[in-house]
Computed example of a mutant assay.
Amino acid sequence: MRLSHPGGAPLHLSYCTNVHPAEDLDGIIAQFDGYAVPIRERLGVDVLGLGLWLAAPVAAALAADPALRGRLRRELTTRGLEVVTLNGFPYRSFQDPVVKYAVYQPDWTTPERLSYTLDLARVLADLLPDDAARGSVSTLPLAWRDPWNATMAEQAARRLDELAAGLAAVESDTGRVVRVAFEPEPGCVVETTEQAVAHLADADHDRLGVCLDLAHLACAWEEPAAALRALRDAGLPIVKVQLSAALETDEPEALREYVEPRFLHQTRTPAGDAADDLDDALDRRLPAPWRVHYHVPLHVSPAAPLTATTPLLREALAELAGGPQPLCDHFDVETYTWGVLPVALRPQTGEQLAEGIADELDFVRAELRHLGVKA
């Protein structure tokens, strides 16, 4: 949805559709009617923003066919929907029964990742509203950390140079600016703000920057003000913010019911203890407190003794949108884990899922209003 910062800059608030499993165009359009339109109506807004996820095959088909892109834009517009950002992290099959480490493939050493991301940029250039300043595509933070060596780092650096050149070509061809945002995540080559600065120091900062996922920031036990200051000092733009909250607890045994087979739930302690998944952390009995990469709904608190990192989200929003000018203009709610929540917390119908997503967006809208943002 469209918001207005007190300084006059427009802000875009959306929800990420990677929570839905469809990976063909007809299925994606069906999502609009099943979820996006009911969400828009529940929020009482004329236009709802989508952080659209397009799996690689449908992205390639759209990039190759202007008529298909035109159809998708019309299907969005007639329903009061718009797209300024795409999630290009999962390549495909993101809601399969088991995803885990597969989500990091192909990585930024490969031509497949480059081609997919440029396909998304070409598609987004045609989907952008006429009055949008720019588009954004979020992507994985280069690769999972193992294996990683100097040869792979050189390959990734070449891919990023090719990516910047490809984005420049998209702008030349369409007149639209699309930037790509690398998303630090626990366990990856780029996990922290410091690593983002180091690995992207030589990148084209006009076209490449950071996607700041607030659950990931929390799991790294980083403070928002310090993280944002480090990015600003390095000249590394915050291209996109993913609004998310992680689990936190001093009593890890209470997390047993959150163990599930689909996604990795990297676990971190403030002392630097780490596990790649929640079940491993429980087996190893890492010292508490823990923060767990498990995106939980923003508008409700988990049952004690669990909490969510919502206070950090509020701190980050104050830094990002509470100043004289916003530090970012693309904000995307990304709770992709609704379908793997403990059964008692899990939506049982599509209507319940739409209600939950709408409540998350309403929560964020209220938080931004407290900062003076007009919605």
Results as ranks from 00 to 15, higher is better:
Ala56Phe: 01
Thr267Asp: 03
Val99Trp: 05
Val45Pro: 06
Tyr294Asp: 09
Arg2Val: 10
Gln348His: 14
Glu360Pro: 01
Phe363His: 12
Asp126Val: 12
Pro347Val: 13
Val296Gly: 01
Val84Ala: 01
Ala133Tyr: 10
Glu334Pro: 10
Pro289Ser: 06
Asp213Lys: 05
Ala304Phe: 04
Asp146Phe: 11
Thr267Gly: 05
Arg122Thr: 06
Leu317Gln: 03
Tyr35Leu: 15
Glu253Arg: 05
Glu315Leu: 09
Val178Glu: 07
Asp46Asn: 13
Asn149Glu: 11
Lys374Ser: 15
Ala220Gly: 11
Pro66Lys: 00
Ala226Gln: 13
Ala196Tyr: 00
Leu327Gly: 11
Thr85Arg: 03
Ala354Val: 12
Asn87Phe: 10
Asp280Lys: 05
Val84Ser: 02
Ala254Met: 07
Ala143His: 01
Asp204Thr: 00
Ala150Lys: 13
His12Trp: 13
Ala168Cys: 04
Tyr116Pro: 03
Leu86Asn: 03
Trp221Leu: 05
Val364Ile: 15
Ala196Cys: 04
Leu247Glu: 07
Thr109Met: 09
Thr349Arg: 14
Ser4Thr: 15
Ala218Val: 05
Pro129Asn: 06
Leu54Pro: 04
Gln95Met: 14
Gly44Leu: 12
Asp273Gly: 13
Leu282Asp: 12
Val103Ser: 07
Glu82Gly: 10
Val292Lys: 06
Pro66Gly: 09
Thr77Tyr: 07
Pro184Gln: 02
Ala225Phe: 09
Leu3Ser: 08
Leu68Asn: 08
Leu3Gly: 06
Leu48Pro: 04
Phe363Leu: 12
Glu248Pro: 00
Thr17Asn: 08
Thr117Ser: 10
Val58Met: 10
Pro342Ala: 11
Asn149Phe: 08
Leu313Glu: 01
